[in-house]
């Protein structure tokens, strides 16, 4: 069974790059353009992994992660956030919000896949 991954990013190009990388590695990918949409798509289901940007309009990544972790059904779902090296304080905040891990932009597709493999329970 292939793992299903939700990717949340307001940048269409980045979403596209993530989708291409992950589907190439055999995962099933669902896309959302901001936190609100991500939350809506994740609610009522359980993805094997969520990859999200933090800086987004409507609802940012932090708010979305917090809201997701409020849902008992989302306990234990790995959430990887995308960040840049200049964002150390964001890392702490995102983790406090309930994120599992992060990936520093810019990243190569292989790095994304490695991180996905790292947090996906085998």
């Amino acid at each position: 069974m292939t793992a299903s991954i939700l990717t949340v990013d307001d940048s269409a190009s980045l979403r596209m790059a993530i989708r291409i990388a992950l589907t190439g590695a055999g995962y099933t990918v669902t896309e959302a353009a901001d936190g609100a949409e991500g939350l809506a798509k994740a609610t009522g289901t359980r993805f094997d992994l969520i990859v999200t940007d933090l800086n987004m309009p409507n609802m940012d990544g932090l708010e979305m992660i917090r809201a997701l972790r409020q849902q008992p059904a989302q306990a234990g779902v790995p959430i990887i956030f995308l960040t840049t090296e200049s964002d150390d304080s964001m890392k702490a905040q995102a983790k406090a919000a309930g994120a599992t891990g992060w990936l520093v932009k810019p990243f190569q597709p292989e790095q994304l896949i490695r991180v996905a493999q790292k947090v996906l329970a085998r």
């Binding site: 234990g76 790995p78 959430i79 309930g98 599992t100 891990g101 790292k118 947090v119 085998r122």
Partner: peptide, 16 residues
Amino acid sequence: PDAMANGTSPLALLDE
């Protein structure tokens, strides 16, 4: 304590 709820799998870490 909240690592598992936040999506970290201890078994995956041990495997690594």
